[in-house]
């Protein structure tokens, strides 16, 4: 068995090395402590609630989040607004519904079961309003970008004046972390842009972290239960493996061969 594991270890080391050297070429992203990383990683509720605030007040004027419903805001493992709060949030949006009995479309206040209201009717309208660039839907944005949360977090703080020799077209901005450094979204965050209801100081760094946490939850709403179940499953498997190992030893001891 020793031989088996030695070979397995060497091969995985080799593959791991390839994987790392692959990652080494990427830009160094800004680092921060994410509460949802690690074996027991959980979301910071307050950060999720603040992040939702940043999303609604800033991002949502251009970016949709079509896979989320208002009910998600009150669900376990998310921002966990109370049901009343979530209902109030939903009701603050006008939702197009219909057709009614007369065949007409009408608007009504949002309900928990409604999807997040989209800022634009369709993709073309979104492009027309943003100089031809489509602000991507944010539901799974974190998972759709190579660097994940670190990338989004860095990007939000990565706006700089272009270096000498780089000329930018109208409506194009320079961002240190953007692929190719040219981005069509202007810098959105500035200190004190939103007023957090819990009194947290709304620095650019704080808002970036909060909204990125919120986006992570939006992309992986079951992350907490995944981590919890994963820990239990792996502990269970390890205990079972140990039991089976000793059973195996016992059974094989009937014949004189080492397992």
């Amino acid at each position: 068995m020793k031989n088996f594991f030695r070979t397995l270890f060497l091969i995985s080391l080799l593959i791991g090395f390839q994987y790392n050297s692959n990652a080494a070429e990427k830009v160094e992203y800004l680092k921060t402590d994410w509460s949802f990383k690690g074996l027991f990683g959980k979301f910071d509720r307050a950060a999720l609630q603040r992040g939702y605030q940043v999303y609604t007040e800033v991002c949502s004027s251009c970016h949709s989040m079509k896979y989320l419903s208002y009910r998600n805001l009150a669900e376990e493992g998310g921002p966990e607004f109370s049901e009343e709060q979530a209902k109030a949030i939903a009701a603050s949006f006008e939702v197009k519904d219909g057709p009614n009995a007369d065949g007409d479309m009408f608007t009504r206040p949002g309900k928990l079961s409604d999807k997040f209201v989209m800022p634009y009717e369709n993709k073309k309208a979104a492009q027309a309003a943003n100089g031809g660039a489509y602000p991507p839907d944010m539901s799974v944005l974190v998972k759709a970008r190579g660097g994940g949360v670190d990338y989004i977090y860095s990007l939000l703080q990565g706006y700089e004046d272009p270096p000498v020799g780089v000329t930018l077209d109208d409506g194009v901005y320079y961002n240190k972390y953007m692929y190719g450094n040219k981005i069509k979204m202007a810098n959105q965050l500035s200190d004190g842009l939103v007023e957090y209801s819990d009194g947290t100081n709304a620095t650019v760094e704080q808002m970036s972290k909060d909204v990125t946490t919120f986006l992570m939850w939006a992309a992986e709403p079951h992350l907490e239960s995944r981590h919890q179940m994963g820990f239990k499953a792996i502990v269970y498997l390890i205990i079972l493996t140990i039991l089976v190992y000793f059973s195996m030893k016992k059974i094989w001891s009937r014949i004189e061969t080492e397992v």
Partner: peptide, 10 residues
């Protein structure tokens, strides 16, 4: 399965 579970859950 332990390795498998690690990928799936983490």
């Amino acid at each position: 399965m332990i390795v498998f579970a690690f990928f799936v859950f983490y």
